[in-house]
Design a protein around this nucleic acid. Structure first.
Length: 488
RNA sequence: GGGCCGCUAGCUCAGUUGGCAGAGCAUCUGACUUUUAAUCAGAGGGUCGGGGGUUCAAUCCCCCCGCGGCUCACCA
């Protein structure tokens, strides 16, 4: 398929041809020595000839003088290009340059009479000709941005333009990278081992979600993209890797919305000789490390809320809080009455599954109040098949979910390590499952049977944590290339 | 999947109670040797998301479809 034709591209292709006719290679392989733009700026006025390179973002022509603004990731600087300072070829080349082209320049630095530090360009080289125009965004003297590219579809499909034109977007992805580095650094320096477990799995588990299904051609076998790393990581704890974590993509073949992406980044950590209380501390410290890396420690603003990230986070017990916020002793109600209530609240019709009813009611009555960082603790056992029960109350599990600004950021528990109990729960669950009737991960149970020490486990939705720490309102704004329907 | 909103020039957006389609920026031509949303003079640029219907006439009204946004549902 040839490049599309339009007035702008045709015009640039003509200039490109003209440049080649001049004997200039428009896409040279090598960049002569250069300083980053910001390094040049911080040098200030000097007679010394310095070099830099960047993308032409603005061009103001004044006859025999042309001003250009060029940028690189470090900043922006003005070029002062005067016919008398350039050789003839350089001046001719300038006439064939457009906004978006990537150039290299050398020259002394001086301040113009309007006070702008500028490169008095003596040599001008083309490093890459842009044949497709980029939208032009201008900022006026008051700092007001005009014609910003804001169409989300355009931004998601053409992230390269978003990153060049939208500073907040670029900074958010830089922050994301630093947050993830800080988390790794925190865990690595506390003797955790980072591992990689299979993405393609024959038996998927560790969560309740529909998987993406694929196929091994050479084995002629169905396989699944993982929905969680949990079961593999616990096998490693059994194997004596007592502090272990993985950061990677999980895939869930379910709805896409503001807080759900079918392909998302999950951090799971497992630590022997501790329990869910230990995991609460880990979560608090991970948030602290991330917030410091993002430069929002200890208070971050999100959606009009001042969120205080200072530990300890509030502990919110599931059942008492549900009773308090709803004003009813819901846990004492029979299933029929709960179902009717859920229906009357418009949360779903004909739900007869007790755990699901409880979950919905909790989401309705409690979750919206969890603005400041909170751990919802002590979930009913029915909601938590992989968690250990409390010794003094087998109806409650040692489990928590962290919430910030009403958003669930993860899930953690004192891991169930009783192999007989775990087998029973998983087999019962599998018998009821629509997707994989009777399928139980025997290797996981094998590992528990061999013996797994008391262990705390914690999963964190990394994209959502990045949302909180960078103010992103949609999970897609934390993912460089979010999934979109085919563009037709 | 449901509801609501949107799709007009390369970009940001007006607009037409149904009657030859508009602006700013960008582009092209010209002027200009310290400008910075440069300025001035001129020019070009559109399948008004796609298809069907109603009508003398549809970008506008109706139906279907596509893509997107918000939201509800689903989602450990």
């Amino acid at each position: 398929m040839a490049i599309e034709e339009n007035e702008f591209i045709d015009n640039r292709l003509e200039k490109l041809a003209g440049i080649r006719e001049m004997g200039i290679a428009p896409y040279p392989a090598r960049t002569p020595d250069r300083l980053p733009v910001e390094a040049l700026r911080s040098t200030g006025e000097t007679e010394e000839v310095l070099c830099t390179s960047g993308r032409i973002m603005a061009k103001r022509k004044h006859g025999k003088t042309v001003f250009c603004d060029i940028t690189d990731p470090t900043g922006r600087i003005q070029l002062f290009i005067n016919k008398k300072n350039l050789d003839e070829a350089g001046w001719e080349l300038l006439g064939k340059l457009d906004l978006g082209d990537i150039v290299w320049v050398s020259g002394a630095l001086f301040v113009t009479r309007t006070g702008e530090l500028s490169v008095r360009v003596g040599t001008l080289l083309l490093l890459a000709k842009a044949v497709r125009p980029m939208p032009v965004v201008k900022t006026d003297a008051d700092g007001e941005v005009h014609d910003a590219v804001s169409d989300p579809d355009f931004i998601y499909r053409h992230r390269c333009i978003d990153l060049v034109l939208n500073e907040t977007s670029k900074n958010r992805f830089i922050a994301r990278s630093r947050i993830v580095s800080a988390i790794r650094n925190y865990l690595d320096s506390d003797d955790f081992l980072e591992v990689e477990t299979p993405v393609l799995q024959q038996i998927y588990g560790g969560a309740a979600a529909d998987p993406f299904v694929s196929h091994y051609n050479s084995l002629d076998e169905e396989c699944y993209l993982r929905i969680a790393t949990e079961l593999y990581l616990k096998r490693l704890v059994s194997g004596g890797i007592h502090r272990v974590y993985e950061i990677g993509k999980d895939f869930r073949n379910e709805g896409i919305d503001r807080t759900h992406s079918p392909e998302f980044t999950q951090l799971e950590i497992y630590e022997a000789w501790t329990d869910y209380n230990g995991m609460m501390k880990r979560f608090e410290e991970i948030v602290e490390a991330g917030a410091k890396a993002a430069g929002v420690w200890p208070v971050v603003e999100f959606g009009g809320h001042e969120v205080d990230l200072t530990p300890p986070f509030k502990r919110v017990p599931f059942v008492p809080t549900l009773h308090e916020k709803s004003g009813e002793e819901l846990f004492e109600w029979d299933t029929e009455r709960l179902s009717a209530l859920v229906k009357s609240l418009g949360l779903g019709d004909d739900i007869t599954d007790r755990p699901t009813l409880m979950d919905k009611l909790f989401d309705h009555y409690v979750t919206p109040h969890l603005i400041q960082p909170s751990f919802v603790i002590d979930y009913p056992v029915e909601l938590s098949p992989l968690a250990k029960q409390k010794t003094d109350d087998p109806g409650i599990t040692e489990r928590f979910e962290p919430f910030i600004v009403g958003m669930e950021l993860g899930n953690a528990f004192s891991e169930q390590n009783d192999p007989l109990y775990q087998r029973e729960v998983l087999e019962n669950q599998a018998a009821l499952s629509q997707h994989r009737k009777g399928v139980v991960d025997q290797e996981f149970l094998y590992a528990l049977e061999v013996g797994m020490p008391p262990t705390g486990g914690l999963g964190i939705g990394v994209d959502r944590l990045v949302m909180i720490l960078t103010g992103a309102k949609n999970i897609r704004d934390t993912i460089l290339f979010p999934h979109l329907r085919r563009d037709k």
